[in-house]
């Protein structure tokens, strides 16, 4: 087989990895065009970290192949390591080194000379708003600061392919926005990014293409819009003032909608799937007005990735997978905070 075309930065073919009786990866295929962001989305235990570890040469697949920046991860791991920057799921910073020393060390290990390693470390510390704590041991950092330091470590050598395993888990909203901005800049500079996340919103915001993974298999892929289209059109939602009016609303919505409306008595809300979006909304409001129904709130929702996830897997992305004994991942996550 010829080496993959240079416009493909990362390619995985039928990756399988088992741990004892757990089939962590059960034939994962993926492809990331150079200069784009791929979001790997899945619940706990789906196989995101395992995929990342194989692509970054930390783990060998049982079978299947993968190429990063044109290099085979099994046959030529050194070439792969020269092309990547990794920020793992659990911040791997040296607690007793300062933030500056951590980044300086990584720079030296990428082969930079002392001056370049020092300059790059200071630059990244400023970019991640860590310059004021640069000379304090990392053990005095908050969880979010460590996460940012770890992320900075992935960027030291300005790698062609950046791999980020849940880069915003444990960050506050500001930290999350900062990280999103950095990822945007990376791509603007031509880098390819593989990003795993449990946040649908994040994949939606950042990724050019999303791969949804569950139980070690890619169960869907496409742009956020394509995935949303798979679930079907939009949802029209109407909230009324009086419980007595719900029946009338349901009647109207069943006429303009493409499906049976759902009534939520508690919230005095009725919603229905619609194919025609705004047109259905205008029509529904006109009819309700004729019947003098007091409409308190009205909304037209495009399906969220959460809806996508629910319809693909039967469980919401934030739910624990039912079959998974998850003491391990939970415990480790708590520790990394």
């Amino acid at each position: 087989m010829p080496p993959p075309a240079s416009s493909i930065a990362v390619r995985a073919e039928a990756l399988v990895k088992t741990f004892g009786s757990t089939r962590a990866l059960d034939g994962v295929d993926l492809e990331i065009p150079a200069g784009t962001v791929l979001g790997l989305l899945g619940p706990n235990g789906a196989g995101k970290t395992t995929t990342v570890r194989i692509l970054t040469t930390l783990l060998r697949p049982d079978s299947g192949r993968a190429f990063v920046a044109g290099h085979d991860v099994v046959a030529d791991p050194d070439a792969v390591r020269r092309s990547i920057g990794l920020s793992g799921q659990y911040a791997a910073v040296d607690e007793h080194l300062t933030g500056y020393e951590n980044l300086y060390m990584v720079g030296r290990l990428y082969g930079k000379n002392r001056t370049d390693a020092a300059a790059r470390a200071r630059e990244l510390l400023a970019r991640f708003r860590l310059q004021d704590s640069a000379d304090r041991p990392a053990k005095t950092y908050s969880g979010g600061m460590r996460r940012r330091l770890d992320l900075a470590g992935a960027l030291v050598a300005e790698p062609a392919v950046v791999v980020l395993d849940e880069p915003t888990t444990g960050l506050d909203p500001r930290g999350r926005l900062d990280t999103w901005e950095v990822i945007g800049e990376l791509v603007a500079d031509g880098a390819t990014v593989l990003l795993t996340t449990q946040y649908l919103e994040e994949a939606d915001q950042l990724a050019d293409k999303i791969f949804v993974i569950d139980h070690g298999k890619v169960i869907a892929d496409g742009t956020a819009d394509q995935l949303k289209a798979q679930v079907g059109g939009e949802r029209l939602e109407i909230v009324v003032g009086e419980p007595g009016e719900l029946a009338a609303v349901a009647q109207v919505l069943s006429e303009v909608g493409s499906d049976e409306p759902v009534t939520e008595d508690h919230q005095r809300r009725v919603h229905v799937k619609v194919d025609t979006g705004p047109k259905a909304l205008v029509e529904a409001l006109r009819r309700l007005d004729q019947q003098s129904v007091t409409v308190l709130d009205v909304a037209l929702h495009r399906p969220t990735l959460d809806d996508v996830f629910l319809s693909l897997t039967g469980h919401s992305a934030e739910d624990e997978p039912t079959a998974e004994p998850e003491g391990k991942s939970k415990g480790r996550k708590a520790k990394s905070r």
């Binding site: 970054t56 040469t57 930390l58 020269r82 990794l86 793992g88 791997a92 290990l109 470590g153």
Partner: peptide
Amino acid sequence: EKGVIDRFRSLPMSRAA
């Protein structure tokens, strides 16, 4: 245990270092 080795192993550094 602290994952520092993972960071090292993902770097293009000498295996024995």
